[in-house]
Every structure is written in C-alpha cells, then in structure tokens.
C-alpha cells in the first residue's frame, strides 16, 4: 500500500467518525460483497430484538406499585384480552374492561395518573413511578389526586374512559412509546383536560415524549413540564393545540 493509499484510508475512516457526530444514522458501514458486514447485521438485529422484547414483555403492575412506595393504586385492564388482540384492535385498547370499571371510585378528583403499558412495558417499569412521584410533588397541595391507575393492554385514550369513570377533571397517561431501533424504553406523557370517551381526539391532548434518562428527558424535567402544563390546563380549562401554542417558549422540545 502506498503512502497516499494509507492516507486516503485513514482519512475516510476519520471522515465517517466525524460525520457520526452529526447523525445516529447507520452510515459508512462498509460492505461484504453487496451486503452488510456481519458486525453491522448483528447490531441491527440486536436493536430490533430489544424493540420486539419491549413490545411483547408482559406488563407487571407490581413493579410500578412497589416503586410508588405505598401510594394507593388500582389495577385495570382494557377490553383487549391479550397482546395479539391489543396490537390489532386499537379500539379495544381504548375501552375499559367492563368488570374493572366498577373498581374505580367516583369522586371529585382533580387529576388521575394512569400508568399504561402501551407498546413498551420496559419504559413503564423503568420510568413511570418516578415521573408520577415527581409530578405529584410539584402540584398544589389542595389538588385531589386519585389513586394511580395501573392499566394493562392500554392505549392513550383508555385514560379518557378511566377519568370519566372516576369523575376526574384531568387525565395524565404515562405510556410506553413504540420502540425504535435506538430506544426501546421511551415513556410518553399525555395530558387531557375534561376527557370524554369517544369524543376527545388527539388534538385535545398535550404530549411530552422521549422521557428516557439519561439520553432523553429526565424524570424531574418531565415532572416540571407536566406540572406546569397541568396548572395551565386547569386555569384555561382546556388542553390541546391552543394550550401548546401559548406555552411554546416555556416548553422546549425534549
């Protein structure tokens, strides 16, 4: 190899390393014939496997309940009986199981936190309890906070049904987000004021996503943002696009 060839080789390697500072895209992977080198093929499979396991690992409400350290909890199921049905029938994941609806004590709650498995039980196990605790600490002491509802096979809109059954003014749904190849443990938070089952739409909600320390939003940062949004929602009597617009400067994207 000539000196010039060695320089080109080193220079290309340095270039890709430098470019990787600007993107997580899988660039400069090299080739095995036309295909990916073995190492990169296995790295892709490892990322996909983590995502698949996050989607299919069962939700364990005990993990969240014990991390909530004695706070009252209620366990509910959606109308989707299993994971296979859940993935194919979003309508069932938005509806409370008829038997479990009766377990929800109707009262004048200001807010209910719903911890929902969504598409990553891992995200919920790792982050949900900490966000509930930190957010609750940041709320005015006179707010009536309902027992934390731990919901299985749940979509975001199940929170509407739960809040409606409890008579809660506001629902905060903490839910496992759809795993990507770089993150399988990302938690989302959806805030809805005056939720009405079947009538509330996504435009009526405010969302924080990518709660996933240390790379994403931290538990305390998420809690601060959520508590700010919740106070504002109560003052304005609404959530959704209008609330988001007014608070853009106070709420940098994660």
């Amino acid at each position: 190899m000539t000196e010039r060839q060695v320089m080109a080789l080193e220079s290309d390697a340095a270039l890709w390393n430098s470019l990787r500072r600007h993107t997580q895209a899988r660039i400069g992977l090299g080739r095995a014939g036309s295909a990916l080198p073995t190492r990169h093929r296995l790295e892709l499979q490892a990322a996909h496997a983590a995502a698949r396991d996050a989607v299919h690992s069962p939700f364990d409400p005990d993990v969240v309940a014990s991390a909530l350290a004695g706070a009252a909890t209620i366990r509910v199921r959606s109308a989707a009986p299993d994971r296979l049905t859940y993935l194919q029938r979003p309508d069932l994941g938005r509806r409370l199981h008829d038997v479990d609806r009766a377990h929800l004590p109707r009262d004048g709650w200001d807010v209910v936190f719903v911890v929902a498995d969504g598409l990553s039980s891992r995200a919920v196990h790792e982050h949900a309890a900490a966000v509930v605790r930190a957010t609750t600490q940041r709320l005015p002491s006179d707010w009536r906070v309902a027992p934390v509802v731990l919901a299985e096979q749940a979509r975001v809109a199940l929170g509407d049904d739960i809040a409606h059954a409890l008579g809660a003014k506001m629902a905060v749904v903490l839910i496992g987000e759809r795993p990507g190849m770089s993150a399988a443990d990302s938690l989302g938070a959806y805030l809805t004021y005056d939720p009405r089952p079947g009538r509330t739409t996504d435009a009526d909600r405010n969302c924080l996503s990518n709660i996933r320390p240390p790379l994403g939003l931290s538990h305390t940062a998420a809690a601060t943002k959520l508590a700010t949004l919740m106070r504002r929602a109560r003052d304005l009597g609404r959530t959704g696009i209008s609330l988001k617009d007014e608070s853009t400067s106070a709420l940098p994207q994660p």
């Binding site: 993107t23 997580q24 895209a25 899988r26 660039i27 992977l29 080739r31 036309s34 295909a35 990916l36 990169h40 892709l44 990322a47 996909h48 759809r178 990507g180 190849m181 770089s182």
Partner: peptide, 18 residues
C-alpha cells in the same frame, strides 16, 4: 433506501442501500 435500513427520523425499518 435508508442507511442500514434504519430510518432514525420516522422510526421504522425500510430497505437499505445495501
């Protein structure tokens, strides 16, 4: 086609350049 078949913006897997 996407780099390595992994679209980091839309969070899904497509075909790769390879």
């Amino acid at each position: 086609c996407t780099p390595g078949g992994d679209d980091i913006m839309l969070n899904y897997q497509s075909a790769s350049y390879h």
